[in-house]
C-alpha cells in the first residue's frame, strides 16, 4: 500500500501542479493594462534618480511577502541586458524595473517571468522618463 501511495505521489502530483498553472495564467491574462497600478511616487523618484533617460515598468505583484520569494524575480530580470536597475518593494507588493530607452518592454513577458518565480502579476504600468 505504501509503495502504491509513493508511486501515485510521484506520478500524479506534477499533473495537479500543471492544472494549477493553466488556471493561474488564464486568470491573469486580461489584467495587465497598467490602469490599476498605484505607485509610491517618492520611491519611484528615488529609483529613477540618476538613471537618465529610461523606461520604467511598475509591476504590481501578488504573493511577494518575503525576501526569499522575491529573490528569483531580481535574478531573472537581471539576466535581461536591457534591464539597468531593479527595485523590490515588499511593502507595496511592487517591482520597479528600469529598461534602456530603446528596449521593447513587453508586459506579457514581465508577467510570464514573474509567474515563473511563483508570484502573480496584477498589473504593469510602463512610464518613460
Amino acid at each position: 500500500m505504501h509503495k502504491l501511495s509513493l508511486i501515485l505521489l510521484l506520478v500524479a502530483a506534477p499533473g495537479f501542479a500543471e492544472i494549477a498553472d493553466q488556471h493561474d495564467h488564464a486568470t491573469h491574462q486580461h489584467q495587465i493594462s497598467g490602469q490599476q497600478v498605484e505607485f509610491d511616487e517618492p520611491r519611484l523618484n528615488q529609483f529613477t534618480n540618476g538613471l537618465g533617460s529610461a523606461q520604467i515598468a511598475v509591476v504590481s505583484v501578488l504573493g511577494m511577502v518575503c525576501d526569499f520569494c522575491a529573490r528569483g524575480i531580481e535574478k531573472t530580470f537581471k539576466r535581461d541586458k536591457t534591464v539597468t536597475k531593479i527595485d523590490v518593494d515588499l511593502g507595496n507588493g511592487q517591482v520597479l524595473i528600469a529598461y534602456t530607452p530603446d528596449a521593447l518592454v513587453d508586459r506579457q513577458d514581465i508577467e510570464k517571468k514573474i509567474l515563473a518565480n511563483g508570484q502573480n502579476v496584477t498589473d504593469v504600468l510602463v512610464k518613460k522618463i
Binding site: L9, L10, A13, P14, A17, L62, G63, G93, N120
Partner: peptide, 24 residues
C-alpha cells in the same frame, strides 16, 4: 527526493502553499 507544489494562493499581503514530497 521530489517535492511538488500542489497549491499556492498569492494575495497582496500573504502567500499560502501546500506541498507533497517523497523520497526513495
Amino acid at each position: 527526493r521530489a517535492t511538488y507544489l500542489l497549491n499556492r494562493k498569492n494575495t497582496r499581503h500573504s502567500q499560502r502553499n501546500l506541498y507533497l514530497h517523497s523520497g526513495l
